[in-house]
Design a binder for these strands. Sequence first.
DNA 1: AGCTTATGGTCAAGTAGCTTGACTATCTCT
DNA 2: AGAGATAGTCAAGCTACTTGACCATAAGCT
Lengths: 148, 148
Amino acid sequence: MQNSDAMALTAALLAAAGGLTQRIHEGVVARGFEGVRPAHGFAFARLAPDGATVTDLAVHLGVTKQAASQLVDELVRKGYAERRPHPADARARLVVMTEAGWACTRAAEAAAAEAVGAWAEVLGEDGVRALRAGLLRVAPGGPIRPSW
Amino acid sequence: MQNSDAMALTAALLAAAGGLTQRIHEGVVARGFEGVRPAHGFAFARLAPDGATVTDLAVHLGVTKQAASQLVDELVRKGYAERRPHPADARARLVVMTEAGWACTRAAEAAAAEAVGAWAEVLGEDGVRALRAGLLRVAPGGPIRPSW
DNA sequence: AGCTTATGGTCAAGTAGCTTGACTATCTCT
DNA sequence: AGAGATAGTCAAGCTACTTGACCATAAGCT
């Protein structure tokens, strides 16, 4: 294996991840959800199904809790999430999705399925499955944020 | 294929790309190159082997030419690149790597090979090859910058 | 119980990397 | 030669993040 092949793999990964994220985002916008960024989608993934605290979100997204708090502010302002008192800890607040948040999540999943479907036409269903399986094995708990 | 599988694939891609980028960056720093960001590495990829103009770089990185120009400023200030008059166009300037730039590139390739080597222990050499081949087929000219 | 330390969250201020807008110099096309 | 396109820079502004300080509550220790 040449060193340059490793760089090519890295570039291909970034290109694939970036392209897919972009397509999903476009699909979400096309379904009528404006003002949402891809990061919000990954926040939703952590909020579902039972909500999460700001600190949970911060860990999941790989940012400071202040940044996560600002992101929640934005989601609340746009009507996608709510802050509720935490049932077991008076310091914490449980962030839960509203119905609008769920609708946005469903839109993102549909858009993602559409984008991945285009890949299946190139690689075949099995190829996509193999790709996902391989990625899950090498990046089990990697950072969700690419964040250069 | 479930919709949620498509989201899992996206998350795995981001995690893999982010993790790999991060490891390479750490490897480059460990080899004594400070003050470089991953974006610089992808700039180097375009500068090699014959240099490039600021506009070329901007297209390659998916940013405005002002942003690319700032990035070149930084590379020049740190001694990794130089601006030369363009041999065929008096408006343009050819940005070329210095010897330090080449050394940094070699360090990045070594770090990348190391990081990918860890993957080969999980997937096997063939698995990594298959992964790269699949990614190259679905993301031929995707954006290098994930840039949410 | 009471004290100490750790944890969840917010407020405030600062920053890095990007953007848009305006401008000059040079090239290209007719 | 003139008109428009293109390479590059300067300047200003924005956005998503950061660090640092702070308060309220929880958990652990004696």
